[in-house]
Design a protein around this nucleic acid. Structure first.
Lengths: 156, 156
DNA sequence: AATGAAAAAAACTGGCT
DNA sequence: AGCCAGTTTTTTTCATT
């Protein structure tokens, strides 16, 4: 259901989304209409989830990244907990991790002060939270959502 | 340099990149040409970093997410270390974190087995790496690169 | 599925306010 | 900066192979 041509199209798009279809068509050596049809199909079949703008966090005063391990009482408070956390725009990621009933959050805030406030006022008070461990990011060298698709292990 | 209208445009784009300009124009109540000019300016001034496709990792057999804390000897091996790590497509993020000379990586692999191989064969052998601590993600509830821009603390 | 031609929509340009 | 009107480019549709 997904062949080398489609794979190639996705690679091109992952390199630079928002290049015109005609250009993609030129690069894969097909007619624009054919490429369009393939992309539509890839979207419909769920290979493509969507398109995102990447804003520059610095410019918006959201330079401070931190990872917060949220420890919970484990008594299936998960539902409301996740929902509440999801509602916080500063929380970019929520992962349930192996170990001892805890979630790992990636958050973005203005500075460490705002971060502290976020944790104290928004996260710590959530029902089921027994504590947090914060890891402050001092420098980010790579940050992308690209996934490796050179591979043979895709679900066709 | 950035006003409420531009802010609004960015909000709309963050909601759904790849909607036509005319539609954005309609939503902010301006002429398409004016909106276009604003977007171009936002790009040029570095508020917009770029546009990305979001591929569905499941479909590409990259469902396993893990965070790897890489401990280093700290003797400024940083340069080569970061460069080597950056070259690994499975490594989506590289952060230098506060604490005891360590980097935090976000990686995506096929399964825990492939993850183990990645760590043993690609990460552990890097010069300056003294050890790794891996946190396996069992479930991801939120994962976005969106940043909060409702705010007053943006660099104008 | 792919193509090519035609139609529709969108992006862009420039002159003017 | 924004708008409008004209131009170019891109996207989309569709009949055909």
């Amino acid at each position: 259901m997904i062949d080398d041509i489609s794979l190639n199209i996705l690679k091109i798009l992952q390199q630079k989304a928002r290049i015109p279809n005609v250009e993609v068509a030129r690069q894969v050596g097909m007619a624009p209409s054919a490429v369009l049809e393939r992309i539509r199909k890839l979207e419909k079949m769920g290979y493509i989830d969507g398109y995102e703008v990447r804003l520059n966090p610095e410019r918006f005063g959201k330079s401070q990244v931190a990872f917060i391990q949220v420890h919970t009482s484990g008594k299936t408070e998960g539902q409301g907990l996740v929902k509440t956390l999801s509602g916080l725009p500063q929380v970019q990621e929520i992962h349930y991790v192996a170990g001892k009933d805890s979630y790992l959050l990636k958050v973005r805030e203005t500075d460490t002060q705002a971060l502290g406030r976020l944790i104290r006022e928004r996260i710590a008070p959530i029902k089921g939270v027994t504590g947090t461990t914060t890891t402050i990011v001092m420098n980010t060298f790579k940050e992308t959502a690209r996934i490796p698709i050179d591979d043979q292990d895709l679900i066709r």
